[in-house]
Design a binder for these strands. Structure first.
Lengths: 321, 321
DNA sequence: CAGATTGATGCTCACACCGCATCAAGGTAT
DNA sequence: ATACCTTGATGCGGTGTGAGCATCAATCTG
């Protein structure tokens, strides 16, 4: 005989737990305080347990309350994400496609793909949200985007990942730098070099670069950090150091007149399409995936150092996106 | 602007999809048909999409309906299991402990543990549900049991698995069989032997045995299948063949007066405690886990071929149950 | 063609939920 | 110390959702 709790009970309990106050939670949930008070009391009555200890001045979770809230929060997240998956899918059926992508990919890889896609489905409204890689995965999991295009995503049981391209890392240096005249540059050559790095909090590139530096067993010279591609390119062009960027970023730093040299040993990241395992594939999404596959097999143009990951013609064994 | 669907809508839609009929689904959901008809229509109105094509004689899912139902089903499963986790946890706080276990473990391993547990918490009501290994994991995932004791469970992201013991496999033979006089028996020795096997549909032991036989690269003689330990032991004692059982089953076949010999190379299965990652640990569950740890470290008595998996005193790196 | 069964619809009613007003209790400020 | 403010709880009235009952049109069956 399971206890009958509704969604409103869960939202009320989690809301109060998060806000730490009935009044604040009520405002946040767009109901009046009295209603919320009743709903929480009702939940406690149904569970036959006290979830909060209230004094007239403060609200605190009980031990049991803390556990219940954790489970309830997960239930609500699952419910809401399910709802978003459904509405997103239905929007897709009505002609909307929402894609999350890394800024560099949104600027270089996506335009060509979307141009091809537009020619096959001119009626579809496409939204591109450029954001950081961790944010991207959250959006896919939460169901607020149809698919995502990102680099080497961390595995997750609810995510289906399909590599579509690989992207090599280059050293970019000002034209008067000694690297600009050399035929080849290795990671070890970066030892002691003044370096312009991406902000680790905002770009996933930094992670890969740090790791490669670590594996080369060297130390950099003075490091200068910047958040945007433009700033990094500008600082590099000004002679403040060299930098390392993936191939898909090269077109975006062209303006600065830098020279780029493939770093050896070659370090690659894979560019992947990520979608939620349980999100139904709407016609618009399916169409986009078809476009990507066509582009990959026909080897459409890509920036230097990047290449399509050609999907085998038969999908046996491989998870079909 | 997300669409506002309630649990009742989801239950109605999934119910109709499963029953294939409004009337049947209404009966199953304990509402009248008219109410269900309205609820589904309301869900379709809110989603602005047709989920079912109805003739007056049949109901069929649309393409979109099929996708929506799949997501909705998952949402309901998640919701209901969350509810069961909460109520199960609260029951635990009130003094109830529900354990799922393989029949052999419920008969041999659990009694001693529960006896110790009873001495520390005499007020707790303990329920033991013995069932097959696949069923066991379903119950843990669905939240209908606190924990489970089973052998080598398949990994699952929502399951926390803690090995507590290992169990070796023995060949059991009638006293007048040649194996009964031999010092050692290898898996290869089983080649061509008449064999009493467990029904593969009802016991997980069969899987392990089949695999070991396969790896030994031999074929058995005539195979006789039975479903219960008693039947297997009886058939073996009657001279109809030899059998292979794990150590925890040995006490249960003692009555038949069989001889058992450790099979070489030694094949083991690990006996594990399994719990749901998000299920809060009630005092009763925590107490039982403490009892198990105490029994393991004090090396309490076990059947032949079985040994405790002593948990390292520090839990660094290991997932603490 | 008559009867049975299907899902949809008009009607009524009950209950849950919401908002407003108010209260008691416990902090805060002068 | 006392007046004031903020907190959560509660009495009350209104409303909307959802349930059940009765019935209908459409269709299948014999």
């Amino acid at each position: 005989m399971s206890i009958n709790l509704g969604l409103s009970h869960l939202r009320a309990v989690v809301g109060v737990a998060d806000a730490g106050s009935f009044t604040a939670a009520a405002a946040h949930l767009h109901v009046v305080q009295s209603s919320l008070s009743r709903t929480v009391a009702d939940a406690e009555r149904r569970l036959q347990i006290r979830l909060f200890v209230r004094t007239t001045r403060s609200v605190e979770l009980t031990v049991e309350g803390r556990e219940v809230v954790e489970v309830a929060r997960h239930m609500l997240e699952e419910f809401d994400s399910g709802l978003r998956h459904v509405t997103g899918y239905l929007d897709g059926s009505r002609g909307t496609l929402t894609i999350a992508a890394l800024p560099a990919l949104a600027a270089t890889l996506l335009p060509g793909l979307l141009s091809s896609y537009r020619s096959t489905r001119p009626d579809v409204t496409v939204r591109v949200l450029d954001m950081l890689s961790t944010e991207i995965l959250h959006h896919v999991l939460a169901g607020s985007v149809d698919i995502a295009v990102t680099g080497s995503p961390s595995p997750h049981p609810d995510l289906v990942v399909q590599p579509v391209a690989t992207d090599s890392f280059f050293c970019a240096a000002p034209v008067d730098h000694r690297f600009a005249r050399s035929e080849r540059v290795t990671w070890s050559d970066l030892a002691g070099e003044a370096f312009i790095a991406f902000d680790p909090a905002t770009t996933s590139v930094r992670l890969v670069v740090d790791r490669a530096i670590l594996e080369a067993g060297i130390g950099l010279g003075p490091v200068l950090e910047a958040r945007t591609v433009g700033a990094v390119a500008g600082l590099t062009a000004a002679g403040l150091g060299v930098t390392v960027v993936p191939g898909f970023v090269l077109p975006m730093i062209e303006f600065a007149g830098l020279r780029h040299i493939l770093l050896e040993p070659e370090v690659q990241r894979s560019i992947c399409i990520v979608r939620h395992r349980r999100r139904p594939l709407s016609p618009t999404v399916q169409g986009f995936l078809d476009t990507v596959r066509t582009a990959a097999t026909s080897e459409g143009p890509l920036p230097a150092g990047a290449s399509w990951h050609v999907t085998p013609p038969t999908y046996g064994g491989l998870e079909n996106v």
